[in-house]
Amino acid sequence: MDTNTSENKSVEILVFYIGKTLYGLRMERVEEIIGIQKIIPLPGSMDEILGIINLRNRIIPIVDSNFLLKEASASSLEEEEKNQGIVIVSFAGERVGIIVDDMCDVLSVHSEQFVSLSKKNEKNRYLKNFVRTKNDSGEDAANQLISMLDLEEMLTFGENV
């Protein structure tokens, strides 16, 4: 899928909630989506690492996206609301999992719907840009803004860049 936005093509993105905010990721980085499962804690790891899971006998590190993005963690919501999942992405040839609090959809968006960040600051250091969603009759009355995650920034936290 051609993702060159200057060529007016459309791109698929995965949309989900972390805390109460809508985030998105380009589908080409998404390897798999799985339901939340037992996360084994990794003592001695940085706070942003929730732990690890065993996926088909391979170890996958799980990143605490709530913590990184400073969103209200799902554990503060009611039990019933816990529809958490893990989005497994490819990163530097390995697989890493990101906790998401609720799944939304896979959307096909047009290059015109991308909105750049005004300027990089503390609040949006892990975002690439935004996507403005079209008016969805029934669901969202107004335009929604989806914050597109910058995996390279997000997953190299704590390392000397």
Binding site: G44, S45, E48, P61
Partner: peptide, 10 residues
């Protein structure tokens, strides 16, 4: 261990 984790130890 994945290299990713090795970089994430305190």
């Amino acid at each position: 261990l994945p290299v990713f984790l090795e970089n994430k130890m305190k």
